[in-house]
Simulated scan of single mutants.
Amino acid sequence: MTARGYDIRDVLGMKRWGVWLVLVGYLVAIWVPLVASRHEFTWLVPPLIGGLLISAMAIAVVVIPGDPMPLCAACMTVAAGPLANALVLLETPTSKGNAVTVSHSAVIGVYVFVILRGRRVLPWCGLAAMACVYAWWGTRTGQSPTGAALMLVFEIGPLVIGVLLSFTLRSTAREVFSLREQITDDLGKAAAESAAADERAHQVHYLDATARPLLELIATGAPLADAQRLDCEVLEAHLRDRMRAPLMTELHLDEPVYRARVRGVDVVLIDDSGRDRDDVSDVFAVSVAEAISQIATEVLDDADDGEVFIRIPPPGRGVAASILHRSGDGASRRVEVADDGQVRVAG
């Protein structure tokens, strides 16, 4: 059960800093009695290695991501339990001691969290393997192997509780994560709708400021003067460019284009970038955008007649923008701005 990066560790608090305090307390509870029982061991090294294995198990069940816990990691964690028990019991000649109890109780504590993390069968296999280890140890130390294995009978209870809790907890977590996803989706839709409404309001305000005066003039039915007709043509071309090539507006080319069209220059703006966005920072670096704006403005201001083509080509061609001016006498001048902001005069 995974939902957009969330897993059962969120519900168990395993991604918060407080879990490390709990983990440290758990490790202290393991090592204090283990060290205090050092006189019970015939050799201290194997039990210390066993304690390190149990510590590694506790850390692994907290830090390893994924839900359910990855199978390989879960198998290694569970398998470390019987091995740790064997190392502790190997140097423990008698059943009277804290080390014997601590070694299996500490492992069972980790097994419960393995169950909560979605691996319900493996810990039971681990418990069966631990019983075999204890039976071997009982035979080795002259005790009843059955009696030694039955020392683990009380550890069945925590595993049963862990299984029952895992069904309830994971079901609740699934509902919580589903509700969280739904809320996130609703918030995203609300934000998108709000942004769309703001954009519509902005466009309406812009049209009201630019197009309304000419529309009201046309609505009067009075003949239009040549200057007014030119204003209509320029406005129509400008509004078309805002829809077809919004990046040009973001490059601050509206005013230079307007001035050129008023002088009689035919300006064509082409955006082949293939982006469904009008934020120039999503398409160009700041230095590249500034270079395009500067060069295009210079070409537009220098043009007195003819045609000016400003094009944003598709990505991956090494050219961020190309500006072509064809004057009325047939001469042409082409300027390109590379992806790195370098300016090249092609003709």
Rank of each mutant, 00 (worst) to 15 (best):
D231Y: 05
R229E: 04
M248S: 07
L187I: 14
K189S: 12
L150V: 15
S171C: 13
A129T: 01
D198R: 06
G221P: 01
L150D: 00
M243F: 09
A148H: 02
D241A: 15
G157C: 05
A225C: 06
R229F: 05
T249Q: 09
C125H: 00
D254H: 07
R140I: 01
W137Q: 02
F167V: 12
G221H: 07
A201I: 09
L207P: 01
D241C: 13
E216Q: 12
T184F: 05
A197M: 05
K189N: 08
L224K: 00
G188P: 00
M130Y: 00
L207E: 13
Y134E: 03
R244L: 15
Q203H: 14
I218Q: 10
I161N: 13
V153Y: 05
R212S: 11
Q182T: 08
T141I: 14
H238V: 01
E155C: 09
K189P: 02
R242A: 14
A227T: 12
V204T: 15
M151G: 05
M243S: 09
L230I: 14
R244C: 14
H202I: 10
G126W: 00
E250C: 05
P213D: 06
V176R: 11
R170A: 07
T146K: 06
L239N: 12
L165E: 03
E155K: 00
G157E: 02
E216R: 14
G188T: 06
V257L: 06
S194Y: 13
D186H: 10
S178F: 06
E181N: 07
L235G: 05
G221C: 08
A219Y: 11
H205C: 09
V133K: 00
K189Q: 12
T210W: 06
R240M: 09
A190P: 05
F177S: 03
A135Y: 00
Q143D: 12
A227Q: 14
R229A: 09
A128G: 09
F177K: 10
E155Q: 12
L165D: 03
R244I: 14
A131C: 13
G126D: 04
D241W: 05
R180A: 11
G147F: 09
D254R: 06
R229C: 12
H238C: 11
M151W: 04
P145C: 07
R140V: 01
L152Q: 02
Y134M: 03
R242F: 14
A191Y: 15
G126H: 01
H202E: 12
A201M: 10
A219E: 14
E255F: 14
R212D: 10
F177T: 04
